[in-house]
């Protein structure tokens, strides 16, 4: 879904003016992010309702590895910094800087996802499957959804790097970087909430 919003890149603003003076694509992106608040809100609420309901299998406190997750959370947080540097470079028409920072952001994101895969595997080995308990189902659904969002973001970042190298991007390059940046930061702020509510505050 997000790709649809992001990549409808060119009509309306290119060589035309809009009523508000704002880019169509950017308004669309912010609307999409506003909508995503309710998506993640629903998943977070489901988790908050079910976090303590463990009919069988391990409880949250038994499977969470706070030091490990803290490091991967920190990595994702710092990827927001590199993303904003990429946007800044793109706005200065610095293609080399843009591709560099985009690549770094994608790598940091990939590290985060890799950490999540490792974490899921470890939890599964400790007996927490998707179907084990309400806690398991809601935990994997929430963090899984987030992980998918990060993965989609990584794919978009890498595609963007490729496209900038080939220089065939429709529309304004800096704007596309900015839009994907908005998406990326949003995924990051969702993790800020998840990290606190899911990991740091015990059930």
């Amino acid at each position: 879904m997000s790709d649809v919003a992001v990549h409808e890149a060119d009509h309306g603003t290119h060589g035309h003016t809009t009523t508000t003076g704002l880019s169509n694509n950017k308004v669309a992106m912010w609307l999409f992010l506003g909508s995503e608040c309710l998506l993640f809100g629903g998943l977070i609420s489901t988790y908050m309702l079910y976090r303590g309901r463990v009919s069988e299998g391990p409880r949250p406190g038994n499977v969470f590895d706070i030091p490990f997750t803290s490091v991967s959370s920190f990595i994702l947080l710092m990827s927001s910094l590199t993303m904003v540097l990429a946007v800044s470079a793109a706005q200065n028409r610095d293609d080399r800087g843009t591709t560099l920072w985009l690549t770094v952001t994608a790598l940091l994101g990939a590290t985060f996802v890799g950490g999540q895969v490792y974490e899921f595997t470890a939890m599964y080995n400790e007996g927490l499957g998707f179907t084990t308990s309400l806690f398991g189902s809601s935990f994997y659904a929430l963090t899984g959804f987030h992980g998918v969002h990060v993965t989609v973001g990584i794919i978009m970042l890498m595609s963007l790097v490729g496209i900038i190298k080939r220089s065939t991007i429709p529309g304004d390059k800096a704007e596309v970087v900015e839009l994907i940046g908005l998406y990326w930061h949003f995924v990051d702020v969702i993790w800020i909430i998840i990290f606190t509510l899911v990991y740091l505050i015990p059930a």
Binding site: K26, V27, W30, L33, G34, E36, C37
Partner: peptide
């Protein structure tokens, strides 16, 4: 307007 779009959802 961007703030409105996002904060309305939030």
């Amino acid at each position: 307007l961007f703030s409105f779009c996002f904060y309305a959802g939030l």
